[in-house]
Computed example of a mutant assay.
Amino acid sequence: MLGKFLAIVLVVSGLAAGGAMYYLQVYGYYDEVALKPGQDVVLLPLGKDTPLPIAYGDFQAIDASSSPIRYRACFSTSLKPEALAQLFQVSEQKVPRNAPGWFDCFDAEALGEALQAGTATAFVSVKNISYGVDRIVAVTDQGLGYAWHELNACGEKAYDGTVVGETCPPRPQNTPPAE
């Protein structure tokens, strides 16, 4: 009888832990991003270091403090990718990161296909928004826009454990809490 009880406890504990991990990964850490009119969608101009805002509407975004690459956003714009490419830095990024299934506006698979087919163009939005992470913005021919965070070359090196080298900025140091 004791063996059956222990087996049931182990199975129930495993199911509870699995359910909790699933919930935390898919729902738990995400928060809606507060709207900042005129600042939510910016692109990096050619030859410049400071991003500029572009016209947008219907903005919605999510982010999580648990990871610098969990940011996802959707918006609409009247601007065309061809016109934007004349003014802003185009990104070679063709594979957006997946968003949680409940964030319906961001379909990474469809966006990736549009980027591959040339019906969408990816742009650099903000370099090193977090150490080793850039914000990428993609705009489609239909006026839909998407944003996500992607590891840059320094981030890939820093997070896979290889030597970062002199071409990357120094990593920010964690400061101890004030006493």
Rank of each mutant, 00 (worst) to 15 (best):
M1Y: 14
G3V: 15
K4W: 12
A7L: 15
I8C: 13
V9P: 06
V11N: 09
V11K: 11
V12A: 15
S13D: 05
A16R: 05
Y23A: 10
Q25I: 01
Q25T: 02
V26S: 08
Y30F: 15
Y30L: 07
E32C: 00
V33C: 07
A34H: 05
K36E: 13
P37T: 08
G38R: 07
Q39S: 13
V42A: 11
P45K: 11
L46N: 09
L46F: 04
G47D: 02
T50W: 00
P51R: 05
L52E: 15
L52S: 14
P53H: 09
G57F: 00
G57I: 00
D58M: 07
F59C: 10
A61E: 11
I62V: 13
D63L: 10
S65N: 15
S65W: 15
A73K: 05
C74W: 05
F75W: 06
F75H: 04
F75S: 08
P81L: 07
E82C: 10
A83G: 12
L84I: 10
A85Q: 14
Q86G: 11
Q86P: 07
L87G: 12
F88N: 05
F88G: 03
V90N: 08
S91Q: 07
E92Y: 02
Q93H: 10
Q93S: 12
P96Y: 03
G101M: 10
D104T: 13
D104G: 07
C105D: 06
C105Y: 03
C105W: 04
D107W: 00
A108L: 04
A108I: 02
A110H: 05
G112Y: 06
E113Q: 13
A114Y: 01
L115H: 01
A120I: 05
A120L: 02
T121I: 00
T121G: 00
A122C: 03
V124K: 02
K127L: 01
I129P: 00
I129D: 06
I129A: 13
G132H: 06
V133D: 09
V133R: 06
D134E: 11
D134W: 03
R135I: 08
I136A: 09
A138N: 07
A138H: 04
T140R: 11
D141M: 12
Q142M: 01
G143S: 06
G143K: 02
G145F: 04
Y146Q: 08
W148E: 05
H149F: 01
E150I: 02
N152V: 01
A153W: 04
G155D: 01
G155V: 02
E156Q: 15
A158T: 01
Y159E: 08
T162W: 09
V163Y: 11
G165T: 12
E166F: 11
T167A: 13
C168K: 10
P169V: 06
P170K: 03
P172K: 13
N174D: 14
T175W: 03
P176Q: 13
E179Q: 09
